[in-house]
Structure formats: C-alpha cells, structure tokens
Design a binder for these strands. Structure first.
Lengths: 345, 345
DNA sequence: TTGTAGGCGTTATCAT
DNA sequence: ATGATAACGCCTACAA
C-alpha cells in the first residue's frame, strides 16, 4: 500500500517539470512530445489529481450541497434525482443534508458553508424564518431556493404555485359532483402550508360566488406525513355538522395516503363515498389502490431547473437573480372519479 | 463582500501567532489569556476553519460517500437515513452517489475515491462483478459493504439473510393456507436476486418434503421496480396450469406493490383470492391498502450499523474486517391474512 | 507556553 | 513551450 502518486512523481517519470504536468492535465498547449510523455507517466502511475489540493488552490470543491427537510418524503427524493440529472456532466458531486425539522440546524448549515466544503447550495426549506432568508442571502456561495422565499429576495429561485394547485384540485372535485370538500393541510407555519391554505380559502370563496357551497373546513396536521394524515382524518370525524365530507384535498401525497388509509380502514369506499386528491404526484400516487389523483408540482423538474440555474450562476456570478416557474398539473386517477350511483348508501 | 478570514487574520487580531490560534482551536493546551484572546478574535471575525485547507493538511475530508443503485427505491432512502443517524455527531458530511444501473460507473466511482474526496465509502451494490469486488478491496479508503460480497472478502460487511427472508415468507403463506405460491423475483444477475431465488427453491423443497406441494413457479422481473412487478403479474397469468396462484412472494416491496396494483386492477381480492408478501418492509408497506405483509431486512438499522463500522474502522484501520448481521423479521399485515370463506368464489 | 518555518498537492505567475 | 517558485489555508514539528 504505497502512497498515491502526485504531480511530482509524474513529472519525474516524464522527465518534465510539475508545471508541464499541470498544463497537460488542464489542456493548456504543450509540445506534443511533452504531452505524450506526461500522459504515459500518468497512465503508468495511475495518477489521479487530488481533489483536496485542487480545492485548496482553486477555492472550489466541485461539490454542491442539497438541503432538504426530510429525505424520507418521496417528493424530495424525486427532487434530488432531478438535481442529480441536472448536474450530470458537470462533474460535480452531491452532498445531501437532511436537516430534520430543526430550523436552527438549517441556519447553522448555511453558515457552515463558509467552511468551503461546497461551491453552491440547493435548498428547499419548509419553514422560512427571516434569519434563514438572511443567511441564504448572505451565504458565501451561490444559493438556489426551490420554493417560496418571499418576493424581492435576491436569490435564484424555482417556484411553483401550490396555492393554485389546491384551487385546481378543488375545481376538479366540484366537477365530479363533490359539495363537502375538506382540506387536510400541513402545518401553517410552513410556506407550503400557508400557500395551500390560501388556495383552499380562495377556491371555497370562488365556489360560493358561483352559488355552490362546498367548504367543509380545514384541519391542520402536525406535519406532512402519512401518520399525521391518519390523525387528521380522525379529527375530521369529530367535527363536521353531522355529515361527513364527500371529498378531501390533502396538502401533499403523504397526507393523502394517510387519509385514504384511515378512511378505507373505516370501511369507506374511495372514490364512491369519498373523493381524495393529493399534491406532489409522487411515484406512489399511481400505484396506490385506488390510485391517487394528485396535482403534480414537478418536483423532479424543479430539481433539474435548480441545477441548471446553479451551473449558470457559477458561470456568471453577477447576473441578476432569476425566477423560474413550474406550473401545477392535475393528474386525474381513480381516487377522485365521479361518485357512481351504486356507491350511494 | 470581503474575503473570508483565515488563521492569519485571527492571529493578528488576537496578537498571537497562527500556531497558537490553531492550538486553541484544536483543543491543545494554552495559557488561558491566550485562549481568551483567540476565542474573542474568532468570534469577532466570524472565523470558521476552511475545510479545504484542513483536508489538504490532514489528508482527510470528513466526508463519507454513500453509493447506491437507485435512490428512488425507498429501501435505500431508509438506509441513507440510517447511515445519517449513525454518523450524526461525527461531524462528517454525506456524499450521495446514485449510480444508476451501470456497473462500469460503479467501478469508476470507487476508483475515483483515490482523488481523495471522501474518507470512506458505504456501498450497497445490487450487482457484484469480480472487478467491483476487487476495486472495493483495493479502494484507497475504508469501505463498508451493505449486502453480500462473497465469503472471505476482506471488507467490513453488514449482512442480512434475504434467502431466509423468502423462506419465512413462504412458511407464513403456507400457514395461512396457501398452496400455489408464486415468486416474483428481480433479476437473478443480482446478488439479492440469486439469494431470494435460492430461498424460494429451498422453501418449496422443504414444503414438498412435508408432503405439501406449494411451488407455483418463479417469474423474473426486469428490475426491482413497481412497473416490473406489474409486468411480472401479467406474465404470471400467461403461464400457470390453468389455476391462478393463490399467493405471491415478491422479491421486494416495489415488486409487491406492482403485483398488488395489477391484481387489484384485474378485480382480484387481496388477501381473499391472493395473498401477497413483500420484502424490505419499506415505509409504504403499512400504508398501502390492503397493507402489505413484508419481511423487514432492517434497512435503516443496516445503514446505522454500517456507519458505526465505518467510524470504528477509521479509528482502528488495522483491525480485521468484521461482519455484522441483521436478522429478517416477518411483519404480518393485511395482504396475507388467511383467505376467508366469503372470499372463495 | 509560544513562535518560526515547512509542507500537504495543486495551479499559476513570471522568467527564460 | 517550459521550469522554478510562490501561493492557497491549515497543522505541527521543532526551537526558543
């Protein structure tokens, strides 16, 4: 187990100076016989440039950090895959930080970027405190935010319109005949939670102005998980004016899965007695039985776009920040089919 | 946007030498007033040690690479979370490489570790070629393999017994009265594919020796995905001696979800007409409707153990390689309940 | 206890 | 076109 070769050994073996080795390896012009000898020496020794030396000298690491609240949520896995796709070919590696739910951790993470272990950051935060936004703006490396970070914040951003996503879901459910549409939201101290609540309120108001009363009420789950969705369903049972909702919009697919699981366990038929629509259109929405109608927010594409923005930002650090948008798209599946006559009790 | 401070600036401000700064920061003894002044300077300047300089000097990066075939498969997400848990507190960052399905990529990845961008590697390869095993053994950094890498390979390993997992699943299905048990396997050119096939054959043989004929046959899916599971179900329909299987063991949960989706779409009742058991016990097994009986292989725990082995290996590089085992555990849920009389046609 | 100086492996400047 | 040399930021003998 001998030490790894360095430029010095390569130079010795090729009979040239380390400067020539470096030049050849970095594609600067060199006499062809010099180049040949260097390449031969490199091949002989199995030399690979050390990324640590390189990082120190160049001040960049070819690493991008991806920070996310919960890698366990498939929507973030898909976003991760998008980022990976978007960066493939750039030679950059991906550093994944699942920050749990501690907001302080996130701020600390961003601050610690000034240790220089990543050239850039892609972050999709659930909660945005003023401190976090400030930390992102002040970050020592380029940052791309996937999500809502407030108008006018000078950061590259990939946005979608999840408020509108809820509106679309609501319209769809009304079109399938539902009139008592409940909303299972995530925590409203999160950006998506607020946006989606606004969407629900807007949709209910719109329905009312068309003479349709459709609001059943919102229940706020403790987080965006399956378990919280199950609890939210239970809570929904305790309220209500005697009548059950005939449809539920869930703020994301995990909550929707939880609602479906609880409702099906209680013996309800979906979509017969209960229509369900999720948000995110994660990979399991299609698979679940019944398959879940869901509003796609293009997680994978948002990841891809974030990566592209990042690469372009690294090329041109001074161009003004850009905002890219991905439109929500309703994907209709079984869980929201029109309640059939034989589904009536 | 001024440059980040370095030890030099800290030393200047504290009125000491850079050596003293370094010593204080690394917990070596120093006179208390020196220490105070250094700490004050550090705080004033918001100094954070540069990980690049540190990495070059110390020859280590505080980074661990985690390589996996498909981050889209929840079992690997869970393993990732386990690794993250196991490393928390070590201060190490996690570099995630989803290698797709190209084996050459994997070998290249391992080889590129000698660029020194990670101190260690946790890898859970689906396919193991002699080249890959050799690359792992020769890797310039400690490697922990989660999975089967062949007896006697001198590498830290976290194993489970997925062959036994299939046997357990088979026994369980027989106990619930099934007698025509099919096996939907993944590709048999993968290590898990082979182990699970062996388990199925062993289980069928054991049943036969007890006078129970239970073998329905194996179908090999093109990969370990939901879509492949759906196709495998279709293929299963084309064979068979007229009678349908009364149960399916799937080589992992994704395949099981695919089978369930296809079977339910075809109008079959689960578990009434078809019992289904998966492997991995991923987070959605509990959620699916009907919930999926699955053999847990402790993905998260294996990740945690891998991280522990790694940290211990970094402490003591010369101790002999170790093998840790996680036992398969059957988690019984709805999809394999005994076929009830009203479920008979 | 503290400071000086050297080196980790690389790239880049500046002579030649 | 090439080579000697100086950085990048950090840690750590070694000397004082």
């Amino acid at each position: 187990m001998t030490r790894r070769p360095t430029v010095v050994e390569v130079a010795d073996r090729a009979g040239v100076s380390i400067a020539s080795v470096s030049r050849v390896l970095n594609g600067k012009s060199a006499r062809s016989d010099t180049e040949d000898r260097v390449r031969a020496a490199v091949a002989d020794l199995g030399y690979l440039p050390d990324s640590r030396g390189r990082a120190l000298k160049l001040g960049s690491t070819l690493q991008v950090a991806f920070a996310v609240d919960d890698v366990g949520n498939p929507v973030y896995t898909e976003m991760l895959q998008g980022v990976e796709e978007g960066m493939s070919g750039s030679g950059a590696r991906l550093l994944v930080a699942s920050t749990g739910h501690d907001l302080g951790d996130l701020v600390a993470l961003v601050a610690s970027l000034s240790r220089g272990y990543a050239d850039a950051l892609v972050i999709s935060p659930l909660r945005r405190s003023p401190e976090l936004v400030q930390a992102l703006v002040d970050a020592p490396v380029p940052v791309v935010v996937v999500g809502d970070v407030g108008e006018g914040t000078p950061l590259d951003t990939v946005r979608t319109d999840s408020r509108q996503g809820v509106v679309i879901a609501h319209e769809h459910l009304r079109q399938t005949g539902r009139r008592r549409i409940a909303f299972v939201n995530g925590p409203t101290d999160t950006a998506p939670g607020r946006a989606r609540r606004d969407g629900y309120e807007q949709a209910c108001a719109a329905a009312l102005s068309e003479g349709q009363s459709s609001a059943y009420g919102m229940v706020e789950a403790s987080d965006f998980s399956v378990g919280a969705g199950e609890k939210a369903w239970a809570e929904l049972q305790t309220r209500g004016s005697g009548r059950r909702p005939d449809a539920v919009i869930a703020a994301n697919d995990l909550l929707a899965f939880g609602v479906m699981r609880a409702a099906l366990s209680a013996g309800l038929r979906i979509p017969g007695q209960l229509g369900v629509v999720g948000i995110d259109d994660t990979q399991f929405a299609r698979v679940f039985s019944p398959s879940l109608t869901s509003v796609s927010l293009g997680a994978r594409e948002r990841g891809r776009i974030a990566a592209r923005l990042l690469l372009e930002r690294l090329e041109a650090p001074t161009t003004p920040p850009r905002v890219e948008r991905v439109e929500p798209v309703l994907v209709v599946r079984e869980s929201s089919a029109r309640a059939t006559s034989n589904a009536r009790r």
